[in-house]
Design a protein around this nucleic acid. Sequence first.
DNA 1: CTGAAAGCGCTTACAG
DNA 2: CTGAAAGCGCTTACAG
Lengths: 340, 340
Amino acid sequence: MKTITLKDVAKKAGVGVGTASRVLNNQAHVSEDKRQRVLDAIEALNYKPDAIARSLKSKKTRNIGVILNDITNPFYSKVFRGLETEAKASDYSIVFVDLFLQDEDAIGEILSFYRSKVDGIIFIGSTVTSEILDHCQKFDMPFVYASASIDASVTSQNMIYSVDIDNEKAAYDATNALIGLGHKDIALILGPIEDKNSTYSRKIGFEKAMTEHGITIEEDWICYGDFSYDSGYSVMKEILKGDKIPTMVFAISDLMAIGATKAILESGLNVPKNVSVMGFDGIKNGEYNYPEISTVVQPRYEMGRMACEKIISLIEKKEIKEPVTILEHTLALRASVKKL
Amino acid sequence: MKTITLKDVAKKAGVGVGTASRVLNNQAHVSEDKRQRVLDAIEALNYKPDAIARSLKSKKTRNIGVILNDITNPFYSKVFRGLETEAKASDYSIVFVDLFLQDEDAIGEILSFYRSKVDGIIFIGSTVTSEILDHCQKFDMPFVYASASIDASVTSQNMIYSVDIDNEKAAYDATNALIGLGHKDIALILGPIEDKNSTYSRKIGFEKAMTEHGITIEEDWICYGDFSYDSGYSVMKEILKGDKIPTMVFAISDLMAIGATKAILESGLNVPKNVSVMGFDGIKNGEYNYPEISTVVQPRYEMGRMACEKIISLIEKKEIKEPVTILEHTLALRASVKKL
DNA sequence: CTGAAAGCGCTTACAG
DNA sequence: CTGAAAGCGCTTACAG
């Protein structure tokens, strides 16, 4: 099947190809008569513009690159959904790369690769290093971070556009709520100790709430996992070996909370009768658990949507009101948590 | 920053741009001397070919379109991961569209849109209609289905490339295993009654195994859900209202199995002591459950990988040994199932 | 308002 | 083996 081009349309409409292009792009300065003839020809020929040819001249691809940490992680997949929906609504396509198990070096590779394929990039859940920033700047490629960590190498000189929640405040609020329920013996399961973003901020928030209530923090109960189900399970096993058992376990990911719950149940104890469990993120998995896991809900869909809105503004050089957007979190207290 | 083009490379190397292009594309008929000079120039200038310009002439985008049913569904996200990894290895990018909540009509729209942006399309988990097939054929766009349903409108005249498991046999094997454990009172939770693919085939497989063992199938225990957690939960609630309780519930998705488990536990019964539960798919959620859900494991990663391999063969017009690939399933009997 | 022409950065016959 | 040239399908100044 021969592809029909703008030239065919122009010929059929009896106008120049430039005029046809103007109609196609909804530009002014075309007489109503010709505009209609072109529109009719487009209709009659069932003409579809060639995105590639358009891009070559305009230097715009209408593609947004998404670099994501792990698409099988339910937290990210929902962020991704928000982002994809927003992109589609604005007529952008998503070009996707999963970073899973790739070393950070790969990012440079990916960026070069992306250069001519996308107009901007959204990073989700990865770590922002100054190296990546330099790369993007060199290629003059706008970028936005969602739920991302900022590496220490990044100075405030760099303009960063991002969307996230206030992690410290979220952990602070959650801890206060748990304390309000009468809990004092609270274990905390964090992410990796070297994680300077959520692990760090949430730890601060937790400590702040505990300290404000004059509760002594049991150092043995500050544990480090890696956000995964398995790490929650094994860290909890360790905690259960101690002389004293906490009445509450606060894990900073739902998956770890679910793993911890399993470890508790396996040991013959009950959740929440003997030990309450609180998670973080608000993924479906927690609701599917029995008992349902309490959590700090992050607006994941909205996070993706906002990130996309932001990158489009950047691409189209629209004004951006706030470079850094902080979204609201909410607490969901469910069956896994008991009032003492 | 001025973009450097092949012309710049050619000039620096002192050759024609055609020769530079030949080197770039690793074509023969270039003297070793010039080849080296071009390579050096590319290196020195840190030249990166422009994907868009390449596509315009070659009519190849090195993009694969992926149309997926629901990226937040853990079953699909793992298929997607397999596919993405394979694509990356072969230097293809993924252009992604989520069909979630969009009507089937949208597919036509998406296809036109895709036409010039991708070289081929992989459909995951959607329903193949003859309309979609016609669309693809009209655009001369190769396509592959993974874990997809074939609509009745599709005749055998259409050449279909697909990857899936043998759903009937999988359900048959699973049912046999459950019967082997001593179960006779087995309830079956299916997908939507109008689903002509997995719901239909798995029902057949189940019935075949039951019949072969001379076990009467309790019609009230053949139930229809929609693969979701919620539907498993509510269908199970209904079953539990009956006079007789099955000793085994076989749900054809892990999410439904998890939902059913919750309903059973809430009713005061134990899994697996009073009722055993078997799922289907092999997603992580089942392993995270307490008790761990037994399941029929589908090779999801491999499914995505093979689908990608297939579409690339189609795009590059390599020979395809088998248009329809049937992957092996495996049974995973875990804590949720008890021997009677 | 509008047509002819140049050009986006490549690839690919076409001569030599 | 290799360079000059045409052309992929658009967009965009440039004249008029």
